[in-house]
Computed example of a mutant assay.
Amino acid sequence: MSPILITVARILVVVLFVVSGAGKVMNPGGVGAAVAGKGLPYPQVLAYLAIAAELGLGLLIALGFYARAAALLLAVFTAATIVLFHDFWHMTGDALRQNQIHAMKNLSIIGGLLMICAAGPGRLAINQR
């Protein structure tokens, strides 16, 4: 497969995380409030971990630097967001539909991340581990 195509695909898989993480950097208090709203402990700590996961791991994958490990960690993080934030099985009406869509989208993204984890970042990467 084309090294350019693999690189473009690797970057496209994480665009959502990098943009979302950058937005969270501008409002960590709001992220903490959302985490607290779910009843999770240490909301500010978890907010900064979410920022680090989205922005930090997303950038590592985009650059192809320890992309396999970063993709696995980001897949675990994304699975946790399904369980903790998009728990549509506890919802009804519009909330159910919206969160089910987000959960299915996240499952698709997890699939892409696991492909990066399995196949590696391709030849056009900072390292190919």
Rank of each mutant, 00 (worst) to 15 (best):
L59V: 15
M115C: 14
N27F: 03
G37M: 06
A22E: 09
V31K: 01
G30T: 06
A34P: 00
I109T: 15
T78F: 10
M115Q: 10
G120V: 15
R10H: 13
A70N: 08
A118Q: 12
L60C: 15
G56W: 02
T81I: 07
Q98K: 15
F65K: 00
I116Y: 13
A67D: 08
A79D: 00
V8D: 01
F88Y: 11
I6F: 03
H102E: 00
G120T: 15
A47E: 00
G32E: 02
P41C: 08
P28A: 09
T92R: 11
F77T: 06
G23T: 11
L113P: 04
G112L: 11
V35H: 01
Q98P: 06
T78S: 09
A103L: 10
E54F: 05
L107P: 03
N127L: 12
G37H: 09
I116S: 14
G93T: 08
D94Y: 07
L12K: 00
C117T: 12
L59E: 03
P121I: 13
L12I: 11
L16M: 14
Q100S: 08
L74E: 02
N27D: 15
S20C: 06
L63A: 08
M1E: 12
I116V: 15
T92G: 14
G30M: 07
L113Q: 05
L59T: 09
L57A: 04
V76S: 03
P28K: 08
A71W: 09
L60G: 03
D94A: 15
L40T: 05
G23P: 08
R129V: 13
G32K: 08
G32V: 03
I4D: 12
L57K: 02
K24Q: 10
I116W: 12
A119M: 13
G30K: 05
F17K: 00
G93L: 10
L73C: 13
L40N: 06
G29E: 10
M104C: 05
H86G: 02
L74I: 10
A95L: 13
G29V: 01
V8T: 09
Q98S: 15
A95Y: 03
D94M: 14
V76C: 04
P43T: 00
K38E: 11
I82T: 02
W89V: 10
M104H: 05
G37Q: 08
I101D: 02
C117A: 15
P3E: 07
V18D: 10
A47Q: 00
N127H: 07
R10L: 12
I4H: 13
L96V: 12
F17T: 02
A80W: 10
V35N: 00
K24E: 13
S108N: 04
F17V: 03
G37E: 08
L49D: 01
A119V: 07
L63N: 00
G32L: 02
N27S: 15
N127P: 08
Y66C: 14
V18S: 09
I51V: 10
G39T: 07
M91I: 12
Q100A: 13
P121W: 13
A47K: 00
G58R: 07
A50I: 01
A119P: 00
A118M: 14
V18T: 06
L72C: 14
V8M: 08
